[in-house]
């Protein structure tokens, strides 16, 4: 039993929010991601909700909710969106994620 508990303890998962919190950020007040919700609505797969590593795209009632604060600036959303609904650019003034290790 004790050993089982120990194993359980060991495989404690890190939630995405906590993983993002391990990073240093200087988040801009203006979003650098804009989603055209009309174009977005026509997409069945919504691959962005699985593939954005920052979890910036989530499904709520069949619609994509997006945020930019946890953006890791990889650009995946732009590439996987089949509808061209994502307008994405790098943040200004060096803002956004600050990789210390990379």
């Amino acid at each position: 039993m004790a050993q089982q508990a120990a194993t359980k303890q060991r495989i404690k998962r890190i939630r995405l929010e906590d993983a993002l919190n391990a990073n240093v950020w200087d988040v801009d007040t203006k979003p650098h991601i804009i989603v055209d919700s009309e174009k977005c609505a026509g997409c069945a797969d919504k691959a962005c909700t699985y593939l954005c590593p920052g979890g910036c795209f989530t499904l709520l009632a069949g619609k994509v909710l997006y945020s930019y604060e946890g953006c890791l600036e990889c650009g995946t959303c732009r590439v996987v969106c089949p509808k061209g609904a994502v307008t994405w650019n790098y943040p200004l003034s060096g803002r956004g994620v600050q990789y210390r290790f990379g």
Binding site: A22, L72, C74
Partner: peptide, 21 residues
């Protein structure tokens, strides 16, 4: 969180999580 990594990395702490194409 799977073997063998969970053992190899036990006690470690996450210092950065990142992504890139």
């Amino acid at each position: 969180a799977s073997l063998p990594f969970v053992r190899l990395l036990e006690g470690g702490s996450l210092v950065e999580y990142g992504a890139h194409l």
